[in-house]
Design a protein around this nucleic acid. Structure first.
Length: 580
RNA sequence: GGACCAUUAGCUCAGCUGGAUAGAGCGCUGCCCUCCGAAGGCAGAGGUCAGAGGUUCGAAUCCUCUAUGGUCCGCCA
């Protein structure tokens, strides 16, 4: 249940009455009518634009509509006043009991408060990370992993049936490179001197793989040609790399439902089947692409190749699906993979890519649009670069991988909770600065700390209550006399709690989990502010001599902690019981 | 040459898909601990929402152009 939706229902049903009474003409569209908290709390608890939106189609003045509507709305017990303001806004004030009821609901529903029905159980597939199985995850992957995982949790919370999926790019040439690199480490494990030419992976993380290969096959591959071992080592190495990646993800607290192998698409007719589907729709043809303008590749020559007519589905140019040597381009298995997702019956697809894949968005959307006949929407979220700092100085190097900072480097230094929260303090398509020192700072400047601190403070209150012999379990608190929460400061926190279900909806609708992080920061600020008012106004403190009063006050604190815990749960962050 | 993203206070960023006087943090100025954790709070100063047009009752938000920065652009995934 969502208070804003309830009030909106009240407004629209009142308007219906006005239509029946002949005050308003029939056939009006109520869709654009909103009920939302006004920017300025001085305007009241709830504002609606109904009169302004309806004025023109109804052929009436906004004020005339607003006056009738206001009078009728004021009759509802939940509404204490309805005032017309500005160009025709209707500002509603709600009875304190409406807000007090929210605390009660939170306490009885627990962290399920705010769980939505927006998704209606629809099946949505969230594909994220999908890093090549050629090495450990780096910072860029980390942001994608955190974003995708939080988005998946958010959608789950909003009532979707979510599948978390990782696409393993184990079919392309980069896996041969991996195999050759592992072979070098294998030779090294046998005591040979090796050099890593360009086009191989020199990172230390393959040393152990070389050792493991030696343990497995002994010297069977030594002094043998590539054709003898490449296939075996490819399989062995990707398996090892996926183990590494899974453990990286685990360190971050990410667990996938499905790991989908690109390789499994080859030799099984599945790529062919997907392309046949497009062919049947007349979207595959042989043709020659224009060279890109402005940039002149040295070796450009016109070439006839097999193309997907993605321009029919919103792309800028058609895209090749087959290379000149007859092999598939990377796009072909991707088409087949998304074809498979569509066939698995997902109602919605979401891909999370790094910003460097921006040029890939249109063709992928075109493919899904074509394959599903436009029935399955694909949303592609790009996560922008992460810039790393230490002591305000940028840095890039990693001991482990040699060339890039790994997910492990980050998680080992600051922990999974901080990593996750900080990665979500910026919207996905904006660049993110990540400073190893600042994220560990314990001050208001650091949102992770600030939110955790609010939660810990409530835990502290509960401990004090226990010492004082005040019963403060959730059931008892839910039964407390919450009409005692009538101070502005208390009602302010309650209002914020009331926004939670609505926030979940908008965040889920826009696929923007960062909104949760920002909301939690605001909620924490409200709690901290309220807390400090207890310094001047003792009646606002949580612990009171009278047990019944104390329970009402503690109920507010506890309800806040519950919503914080629920929000942190979506972000994948553990709420702190105390600060250390 | 084209595509995509960004541009909001001195700095770092939000802004609930078109609403009222555009909000936080840092920094700056001045305050608040005998008090549940001051690791906090309150108040003040600070803005031509990159620029120019357009759409309408109403634009930071939608459309067009321009400027600046970033990512990318056939046989790498």
């Amino acid at each position: 249940m969502n208070l804003f939706a309830e009030i909106r229902d009240l407004i629209t049903s009142t308007l219906d009455q006005m239509v029946s009474a002949g005050t308003l003409p029939e056939g009006l569209n109520f869709d654009p009518i909103t009920a939302e908290p006004p920017r300025d709390p001085a305007h009241g608890d709830m504002a609606t634009n109904a009169a302004m939106v309806l004025a023109k189609p109804a052929g009436m003045k906004p004020r005339d509509i607003a006056e009738v509507l206001a009078a009728k709305l004021a009759e509802d017990p939940r509404v204490t006043s309805a005032e017309i303001a500005g160009p025709g806004f209707l500002n509603l004030r709600l009875a304190p009991s409406v807000w007090q009821e929210i605390a009660k609901t939170v306490l009885s529903e627990g962290t399920a408060f705010g769980r939505g029905t927006l998704g209606q159980g629809k099946k949505v597939n969230v594909e994220y990370v999908s890093a090549n199985p050629t090495g450990p995850l780096h910072v860029g992957h980390t942001r994608g992993a955190v974003f995708g995982d939080a988005l998946a949790s958010l959608l789950d919370f909003a009532g979707y049936d979510v599948t978390r999926e990782y696409y393993i790019n184990d079919g392309g040439a980069q896996v041969d490179v991996l195999a050759r690199s592992v072979y070098l480490r294998y030779q090294e494990a046998h005591g040979q001197e090796v050099a890593f030419p360009d086009g191989t992976y020199p990172g230390d993380y393959l040393i152990a793989v070389g050792e493991a290969l030696k343990d497995k096959v002994g010297d069977a591959y030594l002094d043998k040609g590539e054709q003898f071992w490449i296939s075996d080592i490819r399989e062995f190495a990707t398996e090892k790399m996926m183990e590494l990646i899974r453990s990286d993800l685990k360190a971050l607290g990410v667990e996938m439902d499905v790991f989908y192998s690109e390789k499994s698409l080859y030799g099984t007719g599945r790529i062919e089947a997907a392309l046949q589907d497009l062919k049947d729709k007349g979207l595959i043809y042989e043709g020659v692409l224009e060279p890109p303008k402005g940039k002149k590749p040295e070796d450009w020559e016109p070439r006839e190749q097999t193309l997907f007519k993605s321009t029919d589905h919103g792309d800028d140019v058609d895209r090749p699906v087959m290379k000149s040597d007859g092999g598939w381009t990377y796009f072909a298995p991707d088409i087949a993979y998304h074809y498979d997702k569509v066939q698995r019956g997902f109602d919605q697809l979401i891909d999370v890519f790094g910003a460097d894949h921006g040029g890939y968005v249109k063709r992928m959307k075109a493919a899904v649009s074509a394959l599903s006949g436009g029935t399955v929407p694909l949303d592609i979220k790009l996560t922008q670069l992460v810039k790393l700092f230490k002591n305000g100085e940028p840095f890039k190097m990693s001991k482990r991988a040699g060339t890039f900072v790994t997910l492990r480097d980050v998680v080992d230094q600051v922990g999974p909770d901080v990593t996750r929260f900080v990665m979500l303090t910026r919207k996905n398509d904006a660049m993110l600065d990540f400073d190893f020192d600042k994220v560990l700072e314990q001050s208001r400047e650091n949102p992770v700390f600030y939110v955790q601190y609010a939660h810990a403070r409530v835990a502290s209150v509960l401990r004090k209550a226990a010492e004082a012999g005040i019963a403060a379990d959730d059931a008892t608190l839910a039964g407390a006399d919450l009409s005692l929460l009538d101070h502005d400061s208390e009602l302010g926190v309650l209002r914020k709690l009331g926004e939670w279900p609505r926030l979940v909806e908008t965040a889920a609708r826009t696929n923007e989990p960062h909104r949760v992080a920002f909301y939690l920061y605001e909620l924490a600020a409200d709690l901290h502010g309220h807390w400090n008012k207890g310094n001047e106004v003792p009646s606002l403190r949580f612990i009171q001599d009278d047990a019944a009063t104390a329970q009402a006050k503690i109920a507010l604190a506890r309800a806040t902690a519950i919503v914080i815990a629920a929000g942190l749960g979506i972000l994948g962050v553990t709420p702190a019981e105390e600060m250390r």
